[in-house]
Design a protein around this nucleic acid. Structure first.
Lengths: 248, 248
DNA sequence: AAGTGGTCTAGACCACTCC
DNA sequence: GAGTGGTCTAGACCACTTC
């Protein structure tokens, strides 16, 4: 505890880098390691500052940067917490359909089985093609109207527990289920949007015409330490697509 | 100068609000007023802190917030500057076409004339439909390939000077021309993406099939004080569309 | 060399949450 | 009431840009 300046293990990397920068990497690594869970607060700012042997202001800057980065959240009076991802429903940012405020979207799992990873999923997941995986085929609806079809690939054996349960127990949101049953906390994701056309199966389940344009969202989801744990491809009618951006 | 605490004009708004918050609004208003230009730096942090009668740390926090907000930029050793917008070419974020690094996109103005504002342009511009405006119809290309067609509406009389010049003098980027010839500095914008289909004219100029899906980007551009000054609708082939987002 | 923003420290007091 | 993060101050020293 309370290491002498210039000698502690956390002071890795180029020592010419600013203190707050190296300290941020150190704290970031502890978050990634899972040492702290979203349930309980981190040690207080004063305690962390003392532990690392830096001024309170410096510690506050480091934590503030990690808040901006989306890794932490602060609750005044309560403490600083590791942030839990909550973008399972974020695909709906891209679509106008019904009232955006009108209740949570529903989820209906059409298929759940073991299968070999196709190349397009194996590559972003960083494993060899043909590896065993859990495959989910899912329909998402709002107010009873089909909005999105999703193919979801989850590498085994990490997600084995999920395949052994009845799909009704998964609920509308998958990421909480990953955490509950497999100990996997999704922390960040990358999404790529492109435009495609509906094939016969997609047209049937989305209630649209074959060949009609679709918006295709491919998502790679990662844990705090950057390991990819899920790859999914979601498709929805392009006619419903609407995305708003502010530029400064 | 150096007002007594609690009495200065800039200390507007709810006095229960934090100092840095009220101060940020005050500095933000001075930026919007055009008091400072991107050419020359703002007064130094120490000078501003003294002028407002706050600690240097508080002033630095205010300026830092405005940097995060995109209004200012800092250059170590040189000073703090009002940020100049640079997203005239930002539509190309949405499209994959040729080498993204391969030179700047070209611009070819097909039409430039005075016309009455259509309702879809009049509303975001906050003026009555049918008002007189300058209308530009423009084609944007990369490596000789047509990529985007744009309809651009500029309210008069603000942009009168632009209509009186040969369109060749405008150059590839419009926003610098707005600033140079009309004194209009674009500072922020809102973009809405939807999917449409190519009509006959669009198909001809974009070299695509009629009815082929297009990505439609509608942009409202604003000055520092939030006044809308330009509305444009850009269309490009959906097949070229690709957009990547990181979520945390 | 002078002036700018960048880093870091040390401490005071306040507002809020939780028990 | 105890403990947490939020605000604000005051000052030292460093790195960089500009002339």
């Amino acid at each position: 505890m309370c290491p002498a300046p210039g000698s502690a293990a956390w002071e890795a990397g180029d020592p010419r880098l600013p203190l707050h920068s190296r300290l941020r990497d150190a704290v970031s690594a502890r978050i990634a390691s899972g040492e702290w869970t979203p349930e309980r607060p981190l040690p207080a700012e004063t305690a962390l500052a003392e532990h690392y042997g830096v001024a309170l202001g410096t510690m506050r800057r480091v934590l503030g940067d990690l808040v901006d980065q989306g890794l932490l959240e602060r609750k005044q009076g309560a403490g600083t917490f590791v942030r839990r991802a909550q973008f399972d429903a974020s695909l709906f940012r891209f679509f106008r359909y019904g009232d955006p405020e009108a209740g949570a979207p529903e989820s209906r799992i059409l298929t759940a089985r073991h299968a070999a990873l196709p190349p397009e999923a194996a590559q972003p997941l960083g494993v060899g093609g043909g590896s065993e995986a859990l495959f989910l085929h899912r329909l998402r609806l709002r107010e009873g109207q089909p909005l999105l079809v999703e193919d979801i690939w989850l590498p085994l054996p990490r997600f084995a527990a999920l395949g052994e349960m009845p799909s009704d127990d998964l609920g509308d949101l998958l990421y909480p289920a990953y955490e509950r049953h497999c100990g996997v906390v999704v922390a960040s994701a990358e999404e790529v949007l492109t435009i495609g056309a509906a094939d016969a199966a997609e047209a049937r389940v989305l209630h649209c015409g074959q060949g009609e344009p679709l918006v295709v969202v491919e998502r790679t989801a990662r844990t705090h330490d950057g390991t990819p744990v899920e790859w999914r491809r979601s498709r929805g009618r392009a006619a419903d697509f609407r995305y708003r951006i502010d530029i400064r």
